[in-house]
């Protein structure tokens, strides 16, 4: 294990982390402001990826594909909120889980109906393909660096948006006391729709970014959704800062666990069983991390105690 390899893996972990953050930020905002647990957030990720793949195939432009992903997932998010989620605010979590589970079925089969079962691919633009040599002599894919930069920029923008703008203040006020900000004359239902659209657009953007390094297919949203759940549970539900730190923790734990654990076990057992044990443990590592954190802090690292 060389230092260069370790740095490369850290970058991979960072890339996974920022992608997860884009998903988790929307989830945690939606839960924090509206108190809704949205299982169909993964479907918005998928909608973004499919919109990007469709537009990229039709126009060949990666920029247009990203814009299409943002627009399509925001529209899907608004439709979802207006038609279904809006009726669930007053319901308990059980109804929300079931209704959004039903939405997953509808979105997945609807997408299968429109695009078929074969995976699609998004080509990265020429400017971003191929490796780049970083200081220290590491060859690293440009596109992954682009994802990291994009994710960090959006994270920064989101922090600014929540902390400094008027809507951001209203969102934070909504997390603290929903009835009060309605009483102060903020149109709460428009705010809810806006937050949902924002969360959906972030998920769709994540879908489009990740869609270019893996295949775009039905069901691609759910694994990411579950990881995003782990992220916001670790970070504390409702906290953007928690989502960011949680996302990086999960990204790094998963990536480094897969590389390091088999090597660590290799010190005490023979190579083939070390690979087996290490790989099995690595696939569970983030869940073990989550369980461990929840044992000590039941409402996450940055969550308000309930």
């Amino acid at each position: 294990m060389t230092l260069l390899l370790l740095i490369e893996q850290c970058l991979n972990g960072l890339q996974m982390g920022v992608a997860l953050f884009l998903m988790a930020a929307g989830l945690t905002l939606i839960f924090g402001v509206m108190g809704v647990i949205n299982l169909a957030h993964g479907s918005l990720f998928m909608v973004g990826a499919f919109a990007a793949a469709g537009v990229a195939a039709a126009t060949g432009s990666y920029t247009l594909a990203l814009i299409a992903a943002l627009a399509a997932s925001a529209v899907a998010g608004v439709l979802m909120e207006v038609l279904v989620i809006r009726r669930l605010y007053a319901r308990d979590h059980l109804d929300q889980v079931l209704a959004t589970f039903a939405l997953i079925l509808i979105f997945s089969e609807g997408t299968r109906f429109l695009f078929g079962s074969f995976p699609l691919y998004i080509d990265t633009p020429a400017l971003l393909s191929g490796p780049i040599t970083l200081p220290g002599g590491i060859d690293y894919p440009r596109y992954r660096l682009f994802i990291i930069a994009m994710g960090l920029a959006i994270a920064g923008g989101l922090f600014w948006f929540i902390a400094r703008t008027r809507i951001g203040i209203q969102i934070r006020a909504g997390e603290v006391d929903r009835e009060m900000i309605a009483a102060l004359g903020v149109d709460i239902s428009k705010l809810y729709t806006a937050v949902f659209a924002l969360g959906a657009a972030l998920a769709g953007l994540a879908g489009a970014l990740i869609g270019a390094i893996q295949s775009v297919e039905v069901g691609m949203g759910e694994p990411v959704l579950i990881l995003a759940f782990v992220v916001i549970v670790i970070g504390g539900i409702g906290s953007i800062k928690g989502a960011f730190i949680g996302a990086l923790l999960v990204g790094l734990t998963d990536t480094l666990g897969r590389v390091l654990l088999p090597q660590v076990f290799g010190l005490v057992m023979d190579a083939s069983s070390a690979t087996t044990v290490g790989a099995s443990l690595a696939s569970m590592a983030i869940y073990i991390l989550m369980a461990g954190i929840l044992v000590f802090r039941p409402s996450g690292l940055f969550g308000r105690a309930t």
């Binding site: 839960f31 647990i37 979590h93 889980v97 579950i226 759940f229 782990v230 916001i232 549970v233 539900i237 790989a279 099995s280 690595a282 696939s283 569970m284 869940y287 073990i288 989550m290 369980a291 929840l294 044992v295 039941p298 409402s299 996450g300 309930t306």
Partner: peptide
């Protein structure tokens, strides 16, 4: 130790833990 939405997600995550363990 948790309740509400945390409970939903932590049980979901334990399920996934077994899922990925059996796969690998």
């Amino acid at each position: 130790r948790t309740s509400g939405v945390y409970f939903i997600m932590i049980t979901l995550a334990f399920g996934q833990m077994f899922y990925f363990f059996m796969i690998s």
